[in-house]
Write a protein that binds this DNA or RNA. Structure first.
Lengths: 242, 242
DNA sequence: AAGTGGTCTAGACCACTGC
DNA sequence: CAGTGGTCTAGACCACTTC
């Protein structure tokens, strides 16, 4: 009853893997221009069309960004368009104001059973926990609790978070060389506990949208686990089903 | 300050549009095999590679399904894999039992302001409303209220819904020739009202996940508006962010 | 004008399916 | 074996950006 391993890997996929290695190794950094298709074709000794197909897939996975006439760039969370790739919360009245992140706390702890499982580390390993709120045009709408593996995020402090202008992930990218590739979210409806209710200025028991997210970097390695509680009176979570 | 219309449309995209027309006109029906790439290349007087790129995009949009060695098929909601394309609710304990749909009511009404706006019809136009529940291994988990334009769904009855084995969309496909292409969902957390609470066997005020969905057919035409209330004690809404 | 990605073609060969 | 989609190549030309 053994299942055969895939016995055939097309050339363009091998090239793609080589390019992922180059990205992972930091040879090409976020925001930078990578070599032209012609150069890559020469480097890997394949035709331009083959490199092209590899880049096509990497662009579809949001690892690279093509710009006609200019070249191909490594995707970066500094790009303002990247912000809403993971944040699906939208104001009900087309108000496009960017949310403002307000870090509240940042402390060290030992990983419990659940955090360890979600982050792929051992129970008892050092983790860093961040609490922050997200405000839309001044009003607190989201309370986030973010669990990070201590090994990767050594040196992260509340000050660092508070001083940073930009998204969390753009900070992670520049300070820790971490690229967030994809994420998985599990949504449920829950009742607001006392503390959360106070922060969001609602009554205890208020229905909130609970969003648990595990975020992965290269090689499907989990590097962030967070739980957000969203107040959905004036906002909703928008999801496109294709 | 005028914005230029896209002044250039590549050949493969024109071919793609022609193929969408063939799908829309019913020349190729769900589940059927379409002509081979060679035949299509001859029919449209382009190279196979150009047809290929058109099909690539249609396959990426889930309108077509390629099967190596066999040919290219028109996607169908009869395909069991299609079921979970739109239903993102997953049991917390990897229980893969398929949900069971239980239609409760089906009646005619005139479209109110909101239904008319969502369905792109005029206020007062005939609509059909369906109420049903979804059960996972016997337990009611979802209450759906579904609004359909009367013009398209003439003749839909509760009996028809109850007799049907399979998903709603597969019924719509065979009985009304309607292909659901994509959908948009807006999620919020709400408190259970009296009636819903009774059906789901929970207390009034229980936090529920409200899922509003607008579903589109060819040409981005909305043809269904539904609101579901999901009980998320033993299930969650799973979303992949890529 | 030079360099980039984007399109289009034609042909060869590979992998998979069904007869 | 023939027919299908899948891969790979080489070359020509187009559209966009920059100098």
């Amino acid at each position: 009853m053994s299942v055969d391993a895939p016995t055939f890997s097309p050339l363009y996929r091998q090239i793609k893997d080589l390019m992922i290695q180059a990205l992972e190794a930091g040879e090409w950094r976020p925001g930078q221009l990578i070599p032209s298709e012609q150069e890559l074709a020469a480097r890997f000794s394949v035709s331009q069309g083959t490199v092209r197909k590899a880049i096509d897939e990497l662009a579809a996975e949001n690892l690279l960004v093509r710009k006609q006439g200019k070249g191909t760039y490594v995707a970066s969370h500094h790009d303002p368009r990247a912000l809403f790739r993971f944040l699906r919360l939208v104001p009900m009245d087309g108000d496009l104001a960017h949310p403002e992140s307000v870090p509240l706390e940042c402390w060290r702890a030992k990983a419990g059973l659940e955090a360890a499982r979600m982050l792929g580390i051992r129970q008892g390993d050092l983790i860093i926990i961040v609490r922050r709120i997200l405000r839309f045009s001044g009003d607190p709408v989201v309370v986030d609790e973010i669990y990070l593996p201590g090994e990767i995020f050594q040196g992260l402090t509340l000050e660092m978070l508070q001083d940073w202008r930009g998204s969390l992930y753009s900070l992670f990218e520049t300070r820790f060389g971490l690229r967030m590739i994809r994420a998985q979210e599990r949504l449920r409806a829950v009742a607001a506990d006392r503390g959360t209710a106070e922060i969001l200025k609602v009554k205890e028991g208020k229905p909130l949208l609970s969003v648990e997210r595990v975020t992965y970097t290269y090689g499907d390695k989990p590097v962030e686990w967070r739980r957000g509680l969203y107040l959905t009176d004036d906002h909703f979570y928008l999801n496109e089903l294709n």
